[in-house]
Design a protein around this nucleic acid. Structure first.
Lengths: 213, 213
DNA sequence: GGGTGTGAAGCCGTTCACAGCA
DNA sequence: TGCTGTGAACGGCTTCACACCC
């Protein structure tokens, strides 16, 4: 793990790279082949310097005359953030949120595939929902192992968060995205990202309230 | 707007306060009346100093012997982040994501109520979905005005994000939470918060990949 | 001793300012 | 002239370190 020049790329840069790529794909579809930092910037509402900084960190140099080559850049971002063999993702909780994620996500990324869903509700299990086979949670260990799934998205109701996380960890999941309003606990070797929708709504509400001067 | 000691509270603190409150409610339900900073901290996986800093910013002092009084603290956080008259929220896009948010959120907050939903799909409009009346988007201006809704959550498909935001802004929405994968543009007097689920998934995938040393 | 409150230091990400190049 | 690449300054948030208190 010594050649790991990537470890020191800021988390925020990783997120933005993902968004750059998305924007670049759209531009490429429109027939564009080159793009300037300020163009990327205005698509994402950030500054051009920010974009150049990020690209600097991943070691890409654009041409002065034409800006950045879109295809090269997409490929480079892919080299950095994609796993060449691809990675599989499981959804824990096939309710509205789980299905929303499937619909937003599935098929958008070549190297990242939602491979399995899990739920406790017998009406949902053992059948295909929105294109994803939904297993009962009891099968999690088996399926996760067999498929080699390392990434799990947690979309169960808040009061089931803890127990579900335990199942995920036991099954060998190494990265968890927790959309539950309940903070959870994971071992050190599991990467955890939590996002609390309720807090985000309250935050917006707060700044709206403050604004009414 | 001069007595605005709140404007200089960091965004991140606002988010955490919302989470503290949630955690405190849970503790209160368990019969706890007092709590130490390190207890709050470990519930949310942050440091005790962080908690004390945040509480310092909102001007709350705990007792040395017993830590913080949960009820007092909940009330104080409410005074800060809630609007006393309450605030109404509208959901734009009553698909899976919109409904997921309704189910996670509705009823959890006294001062924040999801009051209306909007969609373009005639199968969804003019009826109640998950307890929220769903109007056709054309009614947005009317309904938003009449109800005095200032907060909107954007959960339409990505390719409808821009046009929907325009409608929201025209209707008088002053705070937007964009869950669409498409960054949007708003006037200066509208508070915008964007969250990109796809980027979050890719980020988790990245750190899982990097971890396999 | 085990908690709280807080000035000061440290860190990290963003922005400024500008050199360099076609 | 208009872009890229980047050292240096800046700013905001977090952590350290410690005074204080029961």
């Amino acid at each position: 793990m010594e050649n790991n020049r990537y470890k020191d790329i800021p988390h925020k840069t990783i997120e933005r790279l993902s968004q750059y790529r998305r924007a670049l794909h759209i531009c490429a579809d429109k027939g564009k082949t080159n793009i300037f930092s300020h163009e990327i910037a205005s698509l994402l509402h950030i500054t051009a310097v920010q974009v150049r900084r990020d690209l600097m960190l991943i070691g890409y140099s654009g041409s002065l005359r034409k800006g950045y080559n879109i295809n090269d850049l997409v490929r480079l971002i892919g080299d950095l953030i994609d796993s060449p063999e691809g990675q599989k993702v499981a959804i824990f909780g096939m309710g509205n949120l789980g299905r929303a994620i499937i619909n937003y996500f599935q098929g958008k990324r070549e190297k990242l595939t939602i491979t399995a869903g899990f739920d406790i509700n017998p009406e949902k299990t053992n059948r295909v929902i929105d294109g994803i086979y939904c297993y009962p949670v009891e099968k999690a260990v088996d399926v996760i192992h067999k498929e080699g799934i390392k990434i799990g998205i947690l979309t169960v109701p808040g009061d089931q968060a803890d127990e579900t996380v335990n199942i995920m960890v036991d099954a060998g999941i190494k990265g968890i995205l927790n959309y539950t309003p309940t903070p959870v606990e994971v071992p050190d070797d599991v990467y955890l990202e939590e996002y609390n929708m309720i807090s985000s709504i309250e935050k917006v509400a707060f700044y709206v309230k403050e604004n009414k001067s």
